[in-house]
Design a protein around this nucleic acid. Sequence first.
DNA 1: AAAAAAC
Length: 503
Amino acid sequence: MTTFADLGLSPKVLSAVTDSGYTIPTPIQAGAIPPALARRDILGIAQTGTGKTASFVLPMLTLLEKGRARARMPRTLILEPTRELAAQVAENFEKYGKNHKLNVALLIGGVSFDEQDRKLERGADVLICTPGRLLDHCERGKLLMTGVEILVIDEADRMLDMGFIPDIERIAKLIPFTRQTLFFSATMPPEIQKLADRFLQNPERVEVSVRSSTATTVTQRLVATHSKDYEKRATLRDLIRAQEDLKNAIIFCNRKVDVADLFRSLDRHGFSVGALHGDMDQRSRTTMLANFKENKLTLLVASDVAARGLDIPDVSHVFNFDVPIHAEDYVHRIGRTGRAGRSGAAFTLVSKRDGKFVDAIEKLIDRKVEWLNGGLDALPPQAEGEEREQRSRSGRERGGRDRDRSRGRKGEARVTETRPAPGIETSETEEKVEAVKAERKTEGRPQTPARSNPRAANHAAPRPANDDNRDRRNRYRRDDDDGPTPLGFGDEIPAFMLIAGKA
DNA sequence: AAAAAAC
């Protein structure tokens, strides 16, 4: 059997791999590392979770041992579609490059240029970038791409989805033709094949069989729910509470606003929860993800920014608060659980309007997904009159709240809006809520760098010593948030009441 | 019915 020692990696790299506890390479690693070390171009067709990252990090480390970086002339360049993936690759260089003295620069948006400039000035051996920030650096004239020996294009099909291909082509034009190119994609549609033909010279094609993302280790269920947001939130809470073996979970929403709303709701209901979407400032994104990985947060509400590629081992549950519009996103989302042969559970909330998206998913994964609770026909019917009443009432309260608080004076600390969730340190919770909510407000507007952002100061603002109005306001907000609250049950309403009460 | 990525 092939071991890492058979692949031709340098002793320094091999020792770091061994220290990490690995002896047997995955198929993509065994297939890609030897030709990469021989300076061949690689066309790698592999999903995330197949060990793809190490298949280019390890040979790059070995090849980089010869030679030295010069100021502003990076030696290698890795392109990633999201900031989190870029950061994850950088972590891999830290881990496997611990015996090297390499200068690794992470060039991503949303953070200050200063530190990135310093690293470039020192001479970077490895640049790990999202396309926009790299081009920005290039345009500022701080970067000479003529010394790049190895170019890695990761997640090419996703870059295509996201409209990054023109950027990638611009970047590739700046890099000498004599470079070595490592090109990875999970799928090979014709457009990607054309791109690969343009970028690669006589590549070694390494294809690993598609990891069956809907493997039997993941239990999948559809969960019927009414379609109003507060009804879906109630269904979700009941579902979460009903899980006996929930260690941690990612909850996916289709839209960023819904990520922010659901996060606030769960936080208010006392769940240990974080949020992750692309309009949050980078500092919050990084902290949220780190806290979730370290199990300081049990739940992570996320947009599809977290659906692909993120390596979070050991997620026990995935909940789809919304049915994904594109079926392939379903596969990526539930692929966050059941990793490395572990068991996992994936629940998808389905309301009447989601029918055709569920059909598309079942067609793609070529099987029916069972209903948890008997399907949409088994849902207790809604009482029309009550629904109308509730809608108008919550509308009034929402309006009142906006006038009272959300449009507070400029610069006024808004931290008092949040009740601390049990078991979470107060300031931390408030900071999280502020971060997720503040970013919602910036939607559609140009982003302000965190440094000069007046809102950033709010994160550190102390809570006023006594805030007598808080309780009253929370009572209103609760109704507004989750529909009518039956009187007399306090905070804990039995799940069946919330459903049966509407019948 | 969306998300992501530069400022």
